[in-house]
């Protein structure tokens, strides 16, 4: 889909939220809780993340428009399930990755995924 199409959909999604019938978040997580977790768990220290205060880190790649990214960790197709698997146990996906295992719970990973999937 082209960008203007995306914008229309984003706008419709926004309208739907305003009407109280928000679109389901990715994996059913809570995006605002996820946003907080991204700060608390130090993600912002290494990544640039729109909407997260002081997230200017440039050790790893920027996470803007992450929902549109095709690959995660340079190898996984970008699905909510794969994103959750990656942030919960990066070394299982890539044993040599410098991304640390932050010992996130499944629920926390779901919330973070929900927030990152709002970044289009």
């Amino acid at each position: 889909m082209d960008r203007s199409g995306m914008r229309v959909i984003a706008l419709l999604a926004l309208l739907a939220t305003a009407c109280g019938a928000g679109p389901p978040s990715a994996l059913g997580g809570d995006p605002s809780a996820g946003k907080l977790l991204l700060r608390q768990y130090g993600c912002a220290g290494c990544h640039r993340i729109p909407g997260v205060p002081a997230a200017y880190g440039n050790t790893g790649p920027p996470l803007d428009a992450l929902a549109r990214r095709v690959y995660l960790a340079g190898r996984l197709p970008n699905t909510p399930e794969n994103l959750a698997a990656w942030i919960r146990d990066p070394q299982r996906i890539d044993p040599r990755t410098l991304m640390p295992d932050m010992q996130l719970s499944e629920a926390q990973a779901r919330d973070i995924v929900a927030y990152l999937y709002t970044l289009r």
């Binding site: 290494c46 640039r48 440039n58 050790t59 790893g60 790649p61 920027p62 803007d64 428009a65 549109r68 990214r69 095709v70 690959y71 960790a73 340079g74 890539d94 040599r96 990755t97 410098l98 991304m99």
Partner: peptide, 19 residues
């Protein structure tokens, strides 16, 4: 294109390919 990571700031990024 959004296939791989964006390269803004790649000159000062800490890592390549995460490894």
């Amino acid at each position: 294109a959004p296939v791989g990571p964006p390269l803004e700031g790649i000159g000062s990024r800490g890592t390549i390919a995460g490894v």
